[in-house]
Structures are given as structure tokens and as C-alpha cells.
Design a protein around this nucleic acid. Structure first.
Lengths: 234, 234
DNA sequence: AGGCAGTGTAAAGGTTATGTAAATGTGGTA
DNA sequence: TACCACATTTACATAACCTTTACACTGCCT
């Protein structure tokens, strides 16, 4: 993952921009400045920055107008930085798509902390998405929830939706018994009626599909209680 | 993509919690409350919430201690909400992993706007992941977002707008199942009604157009779940 | 041992989701 | 208006799947 360190400051107050620029550079950021809304908008659209610091009161185009022009779902996060501490302005800015809103004069430590917080959240979100692809692996059996694929000893096993859900449930509760009542309610979404053999059939089918790849039966029957996924054998 | 609407309030001030809870419920959020840091921490760890509102001054465990216990990279975003408006406290909270920091007493419109801003940024980050790239290529299929052209083995394939969007969505989410509900909402911009066969038709048409150029079917049906773009074959 | 309830599983039956051709609807354009 | 491109609906065939049935078997009880 590339590092987030390119910042864009859009503010007509050159003195403040330079101060900020200097401070943030020392903190390891690469800072560019625009001194009016119009050129700021163009730069912002380049999608070349990790975060934008945006002032409201500016010639040509106000910060709010820049926000609107970018549309509410712009990919670069925006921290508004303005002299007007008015509550309604804050709400307006945030609703127009800003990610944060800091009133001037501000503490530069707080600004830095807020910049870091926004960028950190993006990193966490991105990382999390990749690991969200929940892999459930026990011994030589692995489930991929995103693709609904099951592998045993790296061989693909094709299960139906119901079979997959039952296996997933048993693996999730590995080493503890799962009753047929539970399976019926959670997977089949119905009460278990006295002579319903569906679950037995599904379990039987799962076992058959695993047979060529696995010597030992992974799904153990607990007579009168339910089934259990065995974790502790090959 | 599921909706972000579960909030957790961790605050020992029951009156405020209830007020907030009521207000946020009206705004469409599903709100839970914890009245001390310890139970709050447990709930927070459940990973069951879209966002957490966290107070600092609490019995048993302070908000800062909760933050530290969660670790700086917790997946659930946290908005700190506290009576102490001290600058250094803000910085501390943000550095410990909070995403935002609002001092009591606060304007409830601002709170709502800040909640929305955080959740919106997460949505944007997730959606954006691949769609930013104007050129998407997987195996021998390539999309050019700018011209909306599709090539397979360098041969131009002409798709209609809807077909293109469906293919793009499937490719963007390559290697994970995309449900018909998602396709309907994101491409057709409407809820999927029970006997709507439009998506099947579009997929069928896409397949037909690819047929002359590609031996293997790239769009796999996952019965009962949706479709998935296969990446890993010729 | 005998009986019985629970289980394994092959086969049959029924149900639902999907593939696709064709008909129909729709919005834009000349 | 007629036409075109496209989206949607209809209709039917098919495949995938789930459930039921039937019978054999197992473990457990007396």
C-alpha cells in the first residue's frame, strides 16, 4: 500500500498556507498550495492527493462551491478549515461532502491529529476489506465465503448452497455439537419436524463429496444430539 | 452492500444517552447503549456496529482506556463525545484511534453531520477501491471506462450501457459473488422484485457476445446467490 | 437376543432458479 | 409518424437442487 502523504491546501491566505505547509512538511507530508477556489478545484479533481485542506472564504470560488463542484462522493477526503465557526456552516460543509471541519484559529496539533485520523481510517477500511474475505480453515478444509468455494487438501469441492451453509455452521462451531434443530433453524429456516430427514441427506451428501479427498470422516454423528465437525485429525 | 445504521453509545449519562438514542433513531439509526466503559468495551469488540459514540468520563473504564484497549486500528469508527473540550485531550483521543472528537455541549445537527461524514467516507473508500481505475483488465478481458469499450483477446465487443455496467461491477468484484440484489440496486437503480428476470437476460446477452472470442464462460452462476466473474482461466 | 428409535443413503419426486428466444414496452430521433 | 436501440417481460425448457420415501443398518435399552 502506498503511503498517504500528499496534501493539497486550498486557501487564499498565503501566509497561513505557508506556515501550514512548513509545519506539515516537517511532519513528513508533501504539500501543494492553491490560492483560489478555481485552481484548487482543478487540482482537487486530479485525484492526486491523499487529503485536501479547504478554506471557505476565497476569491472566484468559495470552499462550499468547490465542495459542490466536486460532488458529495469525491474520492479525496476534505478537511474544511475556516474562519467561520458558525454551527450551521459546519453542518453545511459536512453535508456537502467534507470529512471534517475545523474552525480558525485552530491548534496545529489538533489539525495534524485530525488529518492523521482521516487517513488512518481510510487505511483501516482498505486493509479490512481485504481480510474481510473471511477464510475459515480447519485442518485441511478451507471455506471461502466470498466465492462460496470449499477446498480440501487444495482440491476444489463443489457444494450446493445448503450444503455449504451446513458445513460452514459446523465448522464455525467446530469441536462442539450442533443439533439438528439448530441446523434446521439457521440453515433451512424452518422448525425441525419429527420425520424430517433433509439434514441427514445433506450431511450424507457432504460426506460423499469429501470422500475422495479425505480418509477420515470430518463430520461425526452424535447420536441423539446432532453433528460435530472434528478438528484434530488429518 | 449492507446499510450502515447500527450505532453504539457508550456513556454513563443515561439521560443524554436516551436523548441521543431517540434523536438518532428518528434519523434512521438503530441505537444501543452501554453505561460504563467495561460493558462498552465488550460490545465494541463484537464488531457489530457501524460507529461508536464514546464518552470519556465514565466509571470502571474511561473512554481513553477503552480506546487503548481496542487498539489503534479497530475496525469500528469511534466518535468521542466529551465534556472536556481541552485541546490536548482532543489530540490525545484522536491519536489513540478516535476518528472524531466533539466537545459537549454539542449541537445535535453537527453530531449527526459528523456521524454521516464518517460513514460516508467509509462507503466511498470501499466502493472506490477499484472503480477509480479507468482501465480494468482481468485475464483477457479489458474495460476502458472512459470510452466504455470492452475488449476480449484484443477484439472489440459492443455492449449496451446496462450490460457494460453489469460486467464492470462483476469485474470490479472479481473473485467474490455479487448478488442480484446488489446488481439491481447498483446498476438498474431499483429494488429487485421477486420475478424480475432482467438481470438474467443481461447476463445471458453478455455471455452470448463473448462466446465467439472466449471458450470458457467468464460469468459463473452461483445458484441462489448471484454471479461471479471468474479470474483464473484462459 | 429382541425391540426400537436414530441414522445412512439410494432413488424418486417435486420445487425453484436459471437460460434464452421471442414478444412487448419505452424513450429518443429523424 | 415510423424507426431504432435498448430494456423489460413473457413463456417455456432445463438444470440444479431440496425433500421425501424406502429400506438397510447401528447403537442402545431391557
Amino acid at each position: 500500500m502506498e503511503k498517504h502523504n500528499k496534501l493539497l491546501i486550498i486557501d487564499d491566505d498565503k501566509e497561513l498556507s505557508h506556515l501550514l505547509s512548513e509545519y506539515l512538511s516537517l511532519e513528513g507530508y508533501q504539500v501543494s498550495c492553491c490560492y483560489d477556489g478555481l485552481s484548487g478545484l482543478t487540482e482537487a479533481r486530479s485525484n492526486n492527493y491523499s487529503l485536501i485542506l479547504l478554506d471557505v472564504m476565497m476569491p472566484k470560488l468559495t470552499g462550499f462551491e468547490v465542495l459542490e463542484a466536486l460532488g458529495g462522493k469525491h474520492s479525496t477526503p476534505i478537511l474544511m478549515l475556516t474562519a467561520k465557526g458558525d454551527e450551521s456552516d459546519k453542518v453545511l460543509g459536512l453535508e456537502l461532502g467534507a470529512d471534517d471541519y475545523l474552525a480558525k484559529p485552530f491548534n496545529h496539533h489538533e489539525l495534524l491529529a485530525r488529518i492523521k485520523a482521516i487517513l488512518r481510517r481510510i487505511d483501516i477500511t482498505l486493509n479490512q476489506q481485504n481480510s474481510t474475505t473471511s477464510h475459515l480453515q480447519i485442518n485441511n478444509v478451507s471455506l471461502n465465503h466470498a466465492t462460496r468455494e470449499v477446498h480440501c487438501h487444495s482440491k476444489l469441492i463443489t457444494l450446493t448452497g445448503t450444503e455449504y451453509q451446513i458445513l460452514a455452521l459446523l465448522m464455525k462451531s467446530a469441536s462442539s455439537i450442533v443439533s439438528k434443530v439448530e441446523i434446521s433453524e439457521q440453515v433451512l429456516k424452518r422448525k425441525l419436524s419429527p420425520f424430517d430427514r433433509s439434514i441427514d441427506m445433506h450431511v450424507s451428501n457432504i460426506r460423499r463429496k469429501f470422500l475422495p479427498y479425505s480418509p477420515s470422516d470430518k463430520l461425526k454423528t452424535v447420536r441423539g444430539s446432532g453433528y460435530i465437525f472434528l478438528s484434530g485429525e488429518s
